[in-house]
């Protein structure tokens, strides 16, 4: 298989995002019907939701639901002393996998240092995929139960299909990065049985979904009102009506259109 094919296939979740995004934007700009515009906007936003879920996904990671009894900080409570610790737990996908089971903060810290070293040119989530892939070999929990609704499931399905093939060389991680990643992976493997998907993007996207729903609602409500006021929701007809109102019958407000 050519490198180009690899390049495309290995990132196919991103391609889905891009294609959806373009479909959405195209609909917004090309369609004259206001409702279709709103739908296009919705598709566009949805692509971003998938994008967020993609970056939060750790191959082999399970939904961030508390499972075992041995964990004492699943995301961190308002425990200021451990501020640094729980912060990282939530944020660094790679760390999260190692960290969730670690009892000692030192491991976290050492991992953190290594990752920071490794970050260099390679973005963290790519590393994290590498890391978790190794971690995932031990245990292969279901990837289906991310409680984020349909869109999230689409993302997860996609991930489920592709992940086994996604080799450690997922991206252009430098040698240095790979080495560090390897170490991280080993460390993670040593201490963990359960791998969690990074929950933060899910939380974020829940918020974004709410915003998206609100936007759609307002947009559709406006479309309804426009239909009441003008009798149409086709953009070109609306413009024609406004033009006639302005230049034909001397409307109160002047101006150029």
């Amino acid at each position: 298989m050519g490198t180009w094919m690899d390049f495309i296939l290995e990132r196919y979740n991103y391609w889905v995002v891009i294609i959806l995004m373009m479909i959405g934007l195209y609909t917004v700009f090309a369609r004259g019907n206001l409702v279709k515009k709103v739908v296009g906007l919705n598709v566009f936003q949805t692509s971003v939701f998938i994008f967020y879920i993609t970056i939060g996904k750790i191959a082999g990671g399970t939904a961030p639901i508390y499972i075992g009894g041995e964990l004492d900080h699943g995301g961190g409570h308002g425990d200021d002393a451990a501020g640094g610790g729980h912060g990282e737990a939530g944020e660094h996908g790679a760390e999260a996998s190692a960290h969730d089971v670690s009892e000692a903060a030192e491991i976290t810290e050492s991992l953190h240092g290594k990752i920071d070293n490794a970050v260099g040119n390679a973005p963290l989530n790519e590393l994290k995929d590498v890391v978790s892939d190794q971690a995932a070999t031990a245990d292969n929990p279901s990837l289906h139960d991310a409680p984020v609704g349909d869109t999230a499931k689409i993302g997860n399905d996609a991930l489920l299909d592709v992940k086994p093939e996604v080799a450690p060389s997922f991206d252009v991680a430098t040698d240095h990065g790979e080495e560090a990643a390897h170490q991280v992976g080993e460390a993670a493997h040593a201490v963990t049985e359960i791998v969690y998907t990074n929950p933060l993007p899910h939380v974020l996207i829940l918020t974004a979904i709410v915003v998206g729903v609100a936007t759609t609602a307002v947009g559709l409500a406006l479309a309804v009102r426009i239909r009441e006021a003008y009798g149409t929701i086709e953009e070109d007809e609306l413009e024609a009506i406004d033009d006639i109102a302005e230049f034909g019958a001397k409307d109160t407000a002047g101006g150029m259109t």
Binding site: V28, V218, G219, L222, A223, I226, Y230, D242
Partner: peptide, 12 residues
């Protein structure tokens, strides 16, 4: 009534 279309465009 042009406020409606203006608002819609702004929304998009």
């Amino acid at each position: 009534r042009r406020a409606l279309t203006a608002s819609f465009n702004y929304l998009v």
